[in-house]
Amino acid sequence: MQNSHSGVNQLGGVFVNGRPLPDSTRQKIVELAHSGARPCDISRILQVSNGCVSKILGRYYETGSIRPRAIGGSKPRVATPEVVSKIAQYKRECPSIFAWEIRDRLLSEGVCTNDNIPSVSSINRVLRNLASEKQQMGADGMYDKLRMLNGQTGSWGTRPGWYPGTSVPGQPTQDGCQQQEGGGENTNSISSNGEDSDEAQMRLQLKRKLQRNRTSFTQEQIEALEKEFERTHYPDVFARERLAAKIDLPEARIQVWFSNRRAKWRREEKLRNQRRQASNTPSHIPISSSFSTSVYQPIPQPTTPVSSFTSGSMLGRTDTALTNTYSALPPMPSFTMANNLPMQPPVPSQTSSYSCMLPTSPSVNGRSYDTYTPPHMQTHMNSQPMGTSGTTSTGLISPGVSVPVQVPGSEPDMSQYWPRLQ
């Protein structure tokens, strides 16, 4: 039975679970980093996980050691009161100082060594604690504590007292930064006198190289990059290397530039699409467009005044059976039934097929058609009795279509119309 579990990581490298990497692998990681390889490249070359490479390099940059820390136990506290007071002093002298600059000053002034120097995250935590204590304490208590930490007896009751030896409130920041720059020169002199001055200088240079600022491109470089971006948004590694040799930039910087440029292009394309949609959409909808001609068919113009009344309900007709019959029939052209047409008796099958359309009241044959006459024609229609054979009435077949029909004066039988409509 094995005491430890061995495995293979996602890159194909072998590791022992819970145990640190061998010293030979750690040394190779540092050597590759000094030669300029990126952590992701080191991870692929040595088949070590990216997190492990970053952790080893980060500890090497901070402490200069590649040895693993002790497994188990607690780390001794490195942010001692003396170190905290120095950090507060540096922050007062130059409020814009960075944590890694404070760390360098602690090393250069001999406050800490490589073994007990606090990390950048520890210094940031100390600065946050100082800021929170400043908010919790009152103004007087804060000034007393700062005077105690600074070891001075001057008056701290006013704002300019934060910067000793100065009279203009805006000047101390520059003086403090100048003092810090002077301390940086002392850093070089002190570290050069040490035993491991060369190694420390190499480590600091490598650290500065990794902690780079934003790349500033010249106009020629920007023009070359934009020209390549117009050709393709995704250049391959050969195109990037050719462009890197042409404009004297690292291939990694060119790759990052193209990634950022593609993101910018997507944002601009989104804005262009929004403007295009806004320009195509009308600002207001016309009133006429809300009524579609496919839904509402136009009603033909009436030929006679009587045809303006298109349904039985508008003429005072309360018989719903006839109203439904007229509205359900398709529109037909106007025609006239003459008196000489043969009077065919209704076929029983045809009569039964339209039995649902006729009223059940037996008085329908005896009703006159003056009910369908509009009010303004009552006088004219009353002067001509319906009993004469020459009287013409208008029957409504569908809305908007008038059918003048000659009705025999002897017997106005409704059943004569249905064979004609089939």
Rank of each mutant, 00 (worst) to 15 (best):
Q2P: 12
N3V: 09
N3T: 10
S4C: 13
G7I: 13
G7Y: 08
Q10H: 08
G12D: 03
G12I: 01
G12W: 00
F15N: 03
V16A: 12
R19T: 06
R19D: 00
R19C: 07
D23I: 06
D23M: 05
R26K: 02
R26Q: 00
Q27L: 07
Q27N: 08
Q27P: 02
I29V: 06
V30T: 08
E31F: 11
L32K: 04
L32R: 03
L32N: 03
L32H: 09
G36D: 06
A37P: 03
A37N: 07
R38N: 04
C40L: 05
S43G: 09
R44A: 12
R44L: 06
R44H: 14
L46A: 05
L46K: 01
Q47W: 05
N50V: 15
V53T: 04
S54W: 02
I56N: 00
G58M: 14
Y60K: 03
Y61Q: 10
E62V: 14
T63L: 04
T63V: 06
G64W: 03
R69K: 07
A70S: 10
A70I: 14
G73V: 00
S74Y: 00
P76I: 06
R77V: 04
A79H: 03
T80G: 06
E82P: 07
E82Q: 07
S85H: 13
S85L: 14
K86E: 15
K91E: 05
R92E: 11
C94G: 13
P95G: 11
P95C: 15
F98H: 15
A99V: 03
W100G: 05
E101N: 14
I102L: 10
R103A: 14
R103K: 10
D104F: 07
L107M: 09
L107E: 13
S108C: 09
E109F: 10
G110C: 10
V111L: 14
V111C: 10
C112V: 09
C112A: 13
T113K: 08
N114T: 09
N116E: 07
P118W: 02
S122N: 00
R125Q: 03
V126R: 04
V126A: 11
A131P: 08
A131V: 10
S132Y: 13
S132T: 11
K134P: 07
K134Y: 14
Q135A: 10
M137D: 15
A139T: 08
D140A: 10
G141H: 15
D144V: 13
L146T: 07
R147V: 09
M148T: 07
L149H: 12
